[in-house]
Amino acid sequence: MDILSRAHERGETLDLQAFIDQIPYTRFLNIKVDRKGSEITTILKFHHELIGNPSLPALHGGAIGAFLETTAIIQLAYEISSGKLPKPVDITIDYLRSGRPVDTYARARINKQGRRVANVHVEAWQEDRFKPIAAAHGHFLLTPPDEG
């Protein structure tokens, strides 16, 4: 993506909101980014189309998974400026509580960064930071060999 390679080449801080606003699917999910210094919190703004179980009601597990994956990618794009979009290799999502129909927040931590692959942990919560609704860990390819 141009915005990634531009920030990389010029050594500039990546505008994270502008970055994810270029991705149609994260726009559809309605994900916002709040960066305070090096601390990044993503926000999944609640809207009806995120519901997976209307009788509870609860957010769709897939939407939560997608939000966690996006949070990991944003953290990687910010911390590891390679100019490329990181690609997921695998992700394991633990569903801890049902996601209520309100805004959801998430933060990611890079556990290990290698030359080609990074291990990332992500946690999502709603009102209470210490009662996560889901957590995930996954591996991401930083510079896919087939794309140079």
Binding site: H60, F67, T70, I91
Partner: peptide, 14 residues
């Protein structure tokens, strides 16, 4: 990925 048109991994997760 707007450069390639590849579907987001989150859709596959869903």
């Amino acid at each position: 990925n707007p450069d390639t048109g590849v579907i987001h991994g989150g859709v596959i997760t869903t």
